[in-house]
Design a protein around this nucleic acid. Structure first.
Lengths: 213, 213
DNA sequence: TAGATTGTTAATCGATTAACAATC
DNA sequence: TAGATTGTTAATCGATTAACAATC
């Protein structure tokens, strides 16, 4: 997977991982009607050092104003733009078990820029009332659908055994990114973006930290 | 959150995050009947340098044998023990929407050491056929249940607004760890283990990396 | 024994923190 | 102007990689 924008100096993964978090907190401040915040106050809230916050942001430009701090709304929007959240994305969900349903649900409710265009499963599923606009289709049609509809992202919530095949099919059909919820690490071309949500790794790390409690 | 075992030198979070991944690959090798592997070969498979693999493992002891490499099964078990996966844990799931159901499903199917003792929701739910042994209860009983049953972990899949309250209730009742699937960062005592699965952060990082493709 | 590969120390690299001059 | 806080450079810290002696 390529990482960072092409022109400017490479931004580390650690920085990118923090951006959504900054944005999340700024969103909440904005909701509360707070208009300005200093790196020091944000630090206290978010738990990173003020220095790190300034350092992180200055990878992308000077968003603050000396003596005042940062405009909450402006910074929120700017981080959104950096992350590409000012654009629209077309999504398919592959695997419509409980996890697939949960993700469809989540995306529809919380991620307005990510549009669920199609939902796929091995079984023909009763049309889901919540997703009238999304076609629920068997996997046989996956490839054609992705190509015809110009899908950007495939959310993979199929059983582990089928993950690699489904991912390859999606990528061959033109998908640019995979949001992978299966246990397996997918083997895909360099230029495909893969974001893994490895539930087992997360739970096992939790188990580790429980030991010295 | 405390981090690392009490006696020995502090192990960094980065190392702990890699352990489940090592274990996962070793598990697959074992399934394939492979008995020995060198750090070099594992490196090729897993994508970390051989040096890092040896360095990581030697934080916990010498598991290999010079000239030969590592015994797959032995190392798999040892990492399991380091992570605390040789123990049993009692879990409650709080919030039985689609995501809660997905997690219940996942745990039951894949995580034998984590036992679902109770499932809670605001609504009284029809007993789930898949989870006959787990009591499905309204949240009013949460606190008593956790105390009486000696629950270790609460999986939180309620709507964001209720997350903090539910977490506090669970912690007050004696839970040692929280597996948090909501968007919010929970404010809890230092000694509670919190593992976050921030879906939005994950999706937003994915969006970032799509930009230079 | 010779070859292989670990365990471990040393060198390098990168990320975080501290400090401060620039400036609103 | 004085005070505050950024943007940015320098110093520190930690993590990764390289190297190699120990040893199976």
């Amino acid at each position: 997977m390529n990482t960072g924008n092409s022109k400017e100096k490479q931004i580390s993964k650690a920085v990118i991982k923090r951006l959504p978090r900054y944005r999340r907190y700024l969103g909440e401040l904005h909701k509360k009607g707070i208009e300005k915040i200093s790196s020091k106050d944000l630090s206290q809230l978010i738990g990173y050092t003020a220095s790190q916050i300034r350092q992180d942001l200055n990878n992308f430009g000077g968003f603050g104003q000396q003596g005042y701090g940062y405009s909450v709304k402006y910074l929120y929007d700017e981080i959104g733009a950096i992350l590409g959240l000012d654009k629209q994305y077309k999504i398919v969900i592959v695997g419509y078990g409980r996890l697939g349903q949960a993700m469809a649900n989540y995306i529809k409710k919380n991620e307005g820029n990510f549009h669920i265009s199609g939902i796929f499963d091995v079984k023909q599923i009763i049309r889901d009332v919540e997703f009238e606009n999304a076609q629920v289709l068997t996997c046989a049609n996956l490839s054609t659908f992705i190509r015809d509809e110009n899908i950007d992202i495939a959310v993979i919530t199929v059983p582990a055994e089928k993950a690699q095949l489904v991912a390859e099919t999606a990528v061959d059909a033109g998908v640019k990114a995979i949001w992978n919820f299966t246990t397996v690490d997918l083997e895909l071309p360099e230029d495909v973006v893969v974001e893994n949500v490895h539930l087992s790794d997360s739970l096992h790390a939790l188990a580790y930290y429980m030991q010295d409690m």
